[in-house]
């Protein structure tokens, strides 16, 4: 392609973007765009950009909120107050989840699973806060696979490390279930291997897709409310008002999804850890 051709192609893309932006009054995807904050655009380590973005800001907010929450519950009173009770409920929940899925060996993973579960839970909930009302823009970093992918690869790495350290090469027996006929050993091995290798992708993508879908849905419905309200009162009554009612319901559903996705992420990590700890 000639230089002119490239320029034409780029200007075409630019024109199209401008047209799209002009047509859509509310861009449902804009909420996911990452912007560097505080002029940190140029920060980098060894050539890799590490700008402190709005995404990083919300990671920091989630971390601080979680820190405050757990610190408030670490008062170590024999008779707990409400706050301590709440924190103990979460640690007990994670402890129970590990005990049920991994068994007594799972106790040592409580710090990791607790951090994972609570970090994702706080990220999901903070991203749903209605801060737009006061002009702030909440950002859900769990709606980016570049973030969820890191968490899923982290979990998968722990599974691999634990599996190989504990069982050495015997860990590969995970891919050949008990009672497999000799003829089927090779095909089953590959099927199981592929299902095993897909795990980090399914783990990261599930969270990213669930969070993104809900936020897009809310944004699209809100654009219906705003556009129909701008058009005329009849259209608002027919389309805008039902959309608004639906939005209220979907908001409740999203709160549920925020909790469930954090739970699913932690639960699947527990299940994978069980494979690594106990084979099967």
């Amino acid at each position: 392609m000639t230089q002119r051709g490239v320029n034409r192609a780029l200007s075409f893309i630019g024109d199209r973007e401008i047209r799209v932006a002009a047509e859509a009054k509310v861009d449902p995807m804009h909420q996911f765009s990452i912007q560097p904050l505080f002029g940190s655009d140029g920060w980098n380590i060894a050539g890799y950009n590490i700008a402190f973005t709005n995404s990083a800001l919300w990671m920091a907010i989630a971390t601080v909120a979680l820190l405050i929450f757990v610190a408030g519950g670490a008062k170590r009173q024999l008779v707990p107050g409400r706050w301590q009770m709440a924190v103990e409920t979460f640690t007990g929940f994670v402890d129970g989840m590990l005990a049920a899925n991994v068994g007594p060996n799972g106790k040592k993973y409580v710090p990791y699973i607790f951090s994972l579960f609570m970090f994702i839970l706080f990220a999901n909930f903070l991203g749903l806060l209605p801060l737009g009302v006061i002009g702030l823009h909440p950002f859900t970093f769990t709606s980016h696979f570049s973030a969820t992918g890191v968490l899923s690869i982290l979990s998968f790495s722990i599974v691999l490390i634990v599996g190989f350290v504990k069982h050495k090469l015997h860990f590969f027996s995970l891919f050949v279930p008990h009672g497999t006929p000799a003829v089927m050993v090779v095909p089953i091995f590959f099927v199981e291997l592929i299902s095993f290798l897909v795990r980090p992708f399914s783990l990261g993508l599930r969270l990213f897709v669930a969070m993104m879908a809900g936020h897009v849905l809310l944004e699209v419905l809100s654009s219906f409310v705003i556009s129909s309200g701008n058009a005329n009162i009849a259209l608002f009554a027919i389309a805008g008002l039902p959309s608004f009612v639906l939005m209220v319901g979907i908001c409740a559903l999203e709160l549920l999804v925020a909790g469930i996705q954090a739970y699913v992420f932690a639960l699947l990590t527990c299940v994978y850890l069980n494979d690594a700890e106990n084979l099967h």
């Binding site: 990452i34 590490i50 700008a51 920091a60 971390t63 757990v70 710090p111 607790f114 968490l151």
Partner: peptide, 25 residues
């Protein structure tokens, strides 16, 4: 943004894991 995302996630999740997960839990 991938490098920034990965870097800050590791920073903050690492902080969460070591201070909250390992320290307080």
């Amino acid at each position: 943004t991938y490098s920034s995302q990965i870097f800050w996630l590791l920073v903050f999740f690492g902080f969460t894991f070591f201070v909250v997960g390992r320290g307080m839990v």
